[in-house]
Design a binder for these strands. Structure first.
Lengths: 339, 339
DNA sequence: CTCACAGTTGTGACCGTGCACATGCGAGCA
DNA sequence: TGCTCGCATGTGCACGGTCACAACTGTGAG
């Protein structure tokens, strides 16, 4: 019963055409939903496709159309919750729009690694690039290497307004800081992220802005690396002096390490030290105490990001989806200072 | 100075050939490191490539060679730490081997979603598939849809030995269980993962095996969903009876929720309840108390996985990298029961 | 009856690369 | 000198789609 016309190769439109008694072009038209095809013809072609288990060859289509329908994602630390959530959302949104997604990971943040990753993406003739690697250097590289495809980033840089789409990190940081000040804290440290991360810089600026606006004296932020380990060690260092009543940590993981250090020193959160995080990872609600933090909608960010990139690809640069506002989630890790 | 020969199109090997005064085939040979090319010729071609900023067209190459050099990853819950770490490692290993990686996320675990994801991958003519979506159903689908490319999974199923490569989940679970038994616990609950996850099943079996081997009476495991939220609510339920002294949780997140519930009930970990997790996520060392857990090397898993898949692609099915043994990390969340 | 026209289908070239085969050339050998 | 042989390079086609254009059909208006 089964039709076994072609040799060892996968069936092509010409095989389908022969068996359906039409030209290869008619088969192509069926594939592309061309309007003027007789219903009976279309049905016959579709049936043969089914019998042959025909699958269109993407490479051939990309070659003849000059479009790869592929989007590249340049990502650092894609194992972390935030980026990983956004990437998943990006992949789903792109798939729904008929695009394929190809991810390149940054091995490290040096120039060589960035160029290698970009090269890897360009070799696949991606039509657009989403940058989730928020190091400043990546954007320098993007500009210098004269990448000629549109790109979009999830981080607001201040200088890349054409491409940027982001959660308003500054506003989020201000919310967190304001919360601590409103509770009565006046000696507040900021545990920041790595210096070359745009998000880290934005959160730091938000912190400093709010402290300045509220006339609270500020000390220099501590530059961390996002890990719980770092938060723990930084906390131990800070507690040797203990001249503060609150810390705003630039992400939830470092906040967790910080809590660990505080408790290990025989102190209590929030009685002795109030702590605010950033991100609202799913575990934050179950820290002890449950963490007060700033929630970002990573998935929504990924979706809008693809929307923006696709609108760029479509030629119309209008329809900026704008900035997403983060939200302060107050839980048990903050309280008024106890003098 | 700049050579601007071609019109609006990207330069092709023929453009390079014309400017270098050779045939397109010679350019192709330079690209593919053909041995018999005069050094002077090679140098001239390379220089023209540089001037033209020539990039080989992947679609054309894939079309003519019949190989896409692309590997597909089928993944569920790619935002979680374990899978995300493995995916990142897979991408890096594949890139080093000259392959591209394309990830399809499972929207849900129903049949339709699985087929859609597989279809998405097959449409790109991937040469192999890595399955990180550990639902049993996915493998049924793989077999039924007569996927004709090799595939590999990170989870041991017991029935897919040809394709499987995994951390020995059963051994890991036995380590954890044995640790609790050795400490003197006799009333031990198991908080398992979702029923259709192969890993969850393996860990559950490891738990039951060890309990049986040590002659400790067992109660039915509780089926969870991997989230800290679930661990928390399950913990609240369990504590209404409080007929246990230890819990082996199938992952670290649920363990965290569990600790939260225990502490909220006014009890202490490990004094009143000992808890063991699984995975050793980077945060586990900073839980309060620091979590005793079973470490899996996700990155190594990803790397070996690509090695296995590539050896399948190469035709030789030898060289199985074998199973990775997990490691028990003892921290502060376990102690002898206090009667 | 003839012509214009829309709907439907077919023909051949082309996209950029790699392969099979052919060709030119110089060296080694009888 | 003539022949074989290996290196270096060129020629033409195939890969599987899409595009531009041509051709055929039937219908309604002039």
């Amino acid at each position: 019963m089964t039709v076994e016309l072609p040799k060892g190769r996968a069936p092509s439109i010409r095989d389908v055409a022969r068996l359906a008694g039409v030209s290869h072009q008619t088969v192509s038209r069926v594939l592309n939903d061309h309007p003027s095809i007789r219903d009976t013809t279309r049905a016959r072609v579709l049936q043969v496709m089914e019998e042959l288990q025909y699958r269109p060859n993407r490479a051939a289509r990309a070659l003849s159309k000059g479009r790869s329908r592929t989007i590249g994602v340049l990502s650092a630390s894609s194992a972390q919750y935030g980026p990983a959530s956004s990437i998943a959302a990006i992949q789903n949104a792109a798939r729904d729009a008929g695009y394929y997604v190809n991810t390149a990971n940054l091995a490290s943040s040096d120039r060589e690694s960035i160029e290698a990753a970009l090269d890897h993406l360009m070799r696949q003739s991606v039509e657009g690039i989403v940058v989730i690697a928020p190091q400043v250097r990546v954007f320098d590289a993007l500009e210098e290497l004269s990448i000629d495809v549109p790109y979009v980033t999830l981080q607001s840089t201040g200088r890349l307004n054409d491409h940027a789409l982001s959660v308003d990190q500054i506003a989020g940081a201000r919310l967190a800081t304001r919360h601590l000040i409103d509770l009565g804290h006046r000696s507040i440290y900021h545990l920041a992220g790595p210096q070359d991360w745009i998000e880290a810089e934005a959160r730091m600026r938000g912190f400093l802005d709010e402290m300045g606006a509220m006339d609270v004296p500020t000390t220099a932020p501590i530059l961390g690396d996002w890990t719980a380990d770092f938060g723990y060690h930084a906390g131990r260092e800070l507690l040797r002096v203990r001249d503060f009543t609150a810390v705003f940590s630039s992400n939830d993981q470092m906040a967790l390490g910080l809590i660990h250090a505080v408790r290990e020193a025989g102190l209590d959160v929030p009685r002795d030290v109030s702590i605010v995080g950033f991100d609202d990872i799913p575990e934050a609600a179950h820290f002890w105490p449950p963490l007060t933090t700033v929630r970002q909608d990573f998935a929504e960010l990924g979706r809008r990001c693809i929307a923006l990139l696709l609108s760029n690809l479509g030629g119309d640069s209008a329809g900026y989806p704008g900035t997403i506002m983060p939200e302060l989630i107050v839980r048990g890790s903050t309280a008024p200072p106890s003098f």
